[in-house]
Design a binder for these strands. Structure first.
Lengths: 259, 259
DNA sequence: AGACGTCACTTGTCCTTACGAGTGATGACT
DNA sequence: AGTCATCACTCGTAAGGACAAGTGACGTCT
């Protein structure tokens, strides 16, 4: 390290120096960083130290490393897809989701039977180990290449009431909404948003680069009866997608959420 | 590695073995993992390999490492705070935000004058370098210790129309909404949600552990006039907070979002 | 009894060395 | 001209050694 002494470990000083150079615009987005060998010479440190510094910047999502090619400044560009989470109805009363028509099925939907877990049971206001129908989809937006994992869970009881739901648990959600409406339900939805780092299988399925969190949405469909009807889960890489919501003022005060 | 050969590098095999052990429940959440020395002996690999494996699990957010103490399984527990993003009105017409009363000001609000950037300008439907009033807050939820960074941006033109807005740009947002309503506006909001890894200063300000993404919300207040009135930004650690939205079916079909 | 130093344990940092593996250009051979 | 081997460059993996630094318990000294 020939530079000014900074706080912390050597590799952190190197990382800070590179970070500043990037943020100062010394390396444009997409441009290659100096190779490890060059960084070793520039800062007079060993290779593990350089690699440690690079790993730190990688974990921050600031750079991207390609085997055999080099390190590159990641473009902090906007997400390429905005997921509009509104639901609208056509003049005929059918449902339309703004992004619903955009996605392609990358794989065949795989309907299955399963049971509630602690988390899904709570959202569906059921106990644990309650029977339900499920269907998983891997979706792709052909325009941007963005991938998403979609899951539909329908409690056994709800499927019994509306048999056509269980007959085709792999159908698109818009038609599921339509079936529920025909059965006399007036629908509304509650949606919960979380972000977390992906598990390895999610990383590969969604083709995520390093240091990319995923957005995890849980949408519960509510009808005229008190109990939840459908649980949908959507997982999508946060580098590619952002969410859009529309909020209007409720008349009655909102009841306090847990926590 | 005495275990069965798995795909990939040695350290990935070790990481996979530990990951499976955790997910299988062999190590309960909060429980300590074997020390590096023990892992070296168990898998017959060198210390760098063990450390590499541990680093991978750390980046996944699966474990937490404390200097001088050991590695511990992170509890994948639910977020402790649910941010209900609805807005409601009392009988008197005043606004209430479900979580609005929960937060404490950790530091004094710091009002300032600034200009739009590319991103904020787009959300406010203004050009770049347009004048605006800003105010940053560091908020803490005393119950859970969750921290959040809040920013309010008010275009100069809007502040001119409603002077009391500019007089006190550091006031709570509920009163800002009230002022706009008194000025004849009927309010609605559009909110955009993103997730990304924190910058170093965000990590420290929000006191985030490793491998923790942040949720980045942008809420634009719309009034009776076409143009956006206020931009609020909220950044909060995704390990502590989740978001809750309520969706009702629009009458008219939603216009397609960009992307 | 209390304060404090020491020690054994943990992870953190840093070095050297060696080889494996992906990438692209160069040049020789067909 | 086209095909393919080679080479130089990149990052990835793996080992071994040494010392620093945080943590907590144990034991000694006051």
């Amino acid at each position: 390290m020939t530079e000014i002494q900074r706080p912390g470990a050597l590799y952190q000083q190197v990382a800070a120096a590179i970070r500043e150079a990037i943020l100062k615009g010394e390396f444009a987005p997409g441009a290659p960083l100096p190779s490890e060998a060059q960084l070793i010479e520039r800062y007079k440190v060993s290779r593990p130290t350089v690699r440690n510094a690079v790993a730190a910047l990688r974990a921050e999502g600031l750079i991207e490393v390609r085997h055999g090619k080099g390190s590159f400044v990641r473009s902090d560009g906007q997400p390429s897809v905005t997921l509009d989470r509104r639901v609208s109805r056509t003049a005929e009363g059918r449902f339309e989701m703004p992004n619903g028509a955009v996605w392609d099925e990358t794989e065949e939907p795989t309907p299955y039977r399963s049971h509630t877990t602690t988390a899904t049971g709570q959202l569906l206001e059921l106990g644990e180990e309650e029977a339900l129908f499920g269907c998983d989809r891997l979706l792709t937006d052909p325009a941007s290449g963005t991938r998403a994992m979609h899951r539909t869970l329908i409690p056994f009881e709800v499927a019994e009431e509306i048999p056509s739901l269980a007959d085709a648990p792999d159908q698109r959600t818009a038609s599921a909404y339509w079936l529920l409406t025909q059965a006399g339900h007036k629908l509304w939805w509650s949606e919960t948003v979380r972000a977390r780092m992906p598990l390895p299988d999610e990383r590969t399925a969604l083709q995520l680069p390093d240091a990319t969190p995923i957005l995890h949405l849980s949408r519960v469909t509510h009808g005229t009866s008190g109990r939840p009807l459908i649980l949908e889960e959507l997982r999508v890489g946060a580098d590619r997608a952002e969410l859009a919501y529309r909020i209007t003022a409720d008349k009655e005060p909102a009841r306090r959420a847990r926590g």
